[in-house]
Write a protein that binds this DNA or RNA. Structure first.
Lengths: 190, 190, 190, 190
DNA sequence: TATGAATGAGTGTTCATTCAT
DNA sequence: GATGAATGAACACTCATTCAT
């Protein structure tokens, strides 16, 4: 039962992710989602009370997967601060490049009225470790003094710039370019 | 006649800008736009053949205003390269902070299927001077070698980070912080 | 003044005839009619109080032209009854074949709610001579006794059959076939 | 399920038939059709993809019912050729008189751009037997030589003349008058 | 729990008509 | 008389949501 329910829910989320990233949120109807996911419309409404809630669920699903993917392992956490910063940077880049649908959906949602402040906050908890890592850099004097919110946005946006170049401008991006990009960011804030 | 016509079109554009930034594109119906702008539905369709064309028109309107606002004057163009870079950075920041609706609409459209490649390209022509300025920095050796597309995205995203902090996180941003932000960018790419 | 007004009205009627027969009544908007006739929308409403009235006017215009075209001249009226019957039959056929737009518009209107009984009656007055000719055939014993209304519809429909074959089925129709068709009708009712 | 579905579709078709014959196709909106049939707008679109398709469906529905109604039974087919011709003539007349809505809708559609050539052809298959009967009359020498298309149109139009007299001119029509009318047609073409 | 037929408010768009010039 | 910009009711159609099974 529990297994089957998760299956249906997973089917919905996976299909929604694909359709939303391919066509946009509004362009994807619940009927199409039902047809392509193989889950009846009524069943979708057993798992998500409304389309808005489905979008929220999708957002949190992405943030959770993102959080897990960029989590540093125990052994990685033993590296120097700069090394940990670079490891994180690479993980973020690779995550989005390997999950372009997540990238497009999350960025669309960021500027849409679909996601409330509360849900945004809730999503943030999934990558708390990364936020803490940034705070640590401030505290241990690695970074120049700066507003922590700005620091995080600055780094995120700068990493994202290269992801955009790879996914939207279809420029070939090498591992070396990724490292160079993180190097630039490091230079900027230290 | 000419004056009134411009008035109507301006009313539509101004209201659309407000509603689109407040509620999103799809959430704003032509009926609501008509009611709030005080222009009859039919009249709106005399100025824009469809909602899509209205969105395109709005996008180009914003890009044009943006381009004009960040254009360096003849006297400003006589400054040193670094100074010109900073002037541009400040102008971009101030433009978006003074026109938050433009900021939200343009960023929403960036990730939406509303705007075709052609229109995006057309919009780019309005701030060609800034693109050229970035290219100049590469040619005159101010910047480290880097893919020009990445360079522009990197700088834009980094400037935008502070705009987001001011407009979305409601953090008070001083002129000093703006200069510091540009300084960070300059450090990163030189 | 009078001359110009007639000009405008003629322009409207001629263009309406063309557009209505090409596209149908409902598919032709007053705006398109205005553009293609070169008469401003407002001006059209000076000549016809509404689209319905324009359609009525068009109908009467066609019936008048039709009536004039099938009118037997004084010399033709001196022929024997059967000859007059054949002359009339040929005239009707030729009129519709030479004015296919009239044919299609009149037949469309016949089964549409556009034309009221009164207007239909009014239109009938334009070809009273032909109606009288049919009544004469009844009175002089040329025809078998028959309801006059049925007689007229029977003859009209039978003539129209060959027009349809020529205009809708694109069958080549010779003068001989026209005469044969009238001969069939004559045989039927005498 | 099946029963209810058929019910809804039947409700739509019946109401459409009534409204289309009373008011015309274009004058009947999907909203009115919904209200008067007691079927929600959305439901109508489950059964017919568009208004055009509804009209097509209605046309074919009529042609099918017409075809069935005028089909000669096995025993009727054993009659002499002339008798079969008369039986068919009476059936056509009675069908339209008993289904005036069918009469008005089919004749309206005949001169409207709603029905494509393909659909017209498809509709024709429903009364192929009658077409064959006409061809038989040509082959067995009952009729004078004549273009088959013209023959069919001539007979149809002539039968229809009496239907029009009954339905549009509200003239009382007796069985004798129907036979007389067919007699006229028989005389014309033999 | 799972289904999908049914719903009707809401959408973008059209177009006959008006009226200030 | 002549114009055409402006109007808004009406249109065909969509789709998130419900509910009887």
């Amino acid at each position: 039962m529990q297994g089957e329910k998760l299956d249906k829910k997973t089917q919905i989320v996976k299909t929604a992710l694909r359709l939303f990233s391919e066509q946009g949120l509004q362009q994807t109807s619940m009927a199409q989602l039902s047809k392509e996911s193989g889950v009846a419309v009524g069943t979708m409404y057993l798992h998500f009370k409304s389309k808005d809630e489905l979008v929220e669920g999708l957002f949190l699903h992405i943030q959770e997967a993102f959080g897990k993917a960029i989590d540093l392992s125990d052994s990685e956490m033993k590296a120097s601060y700069k090394d940990r910063f670079f490891i994180l940077g690479r993980k973020v880049h690779h995550y989005y490049v390997n999950n372009p649908a997540h990238f497009f959906v999350v960025n669309t949602l960021n500027y849409s009225p679909y996601i409330s402040k509360e849900i945004t906050e809730l999503g943030r908890t999934y990558y708390q470790q990364s936020v803490d890592l940034m705070a640590e850099g401030l505290e241990n004097g690695s970074f120049q003094p700066i507003n922590i919110v700005l620091l995080i946005r600055f780094i995120y946006n700068a990493v994202i710039a290269l992801v955009q170049v790879q996914l939207k401008d279809n420029v070939e991006v090498t591992e070396h370019m990724i490292d160079q990009n993180i190097e630039r960011i490091w230079k900027a804030i230290t």
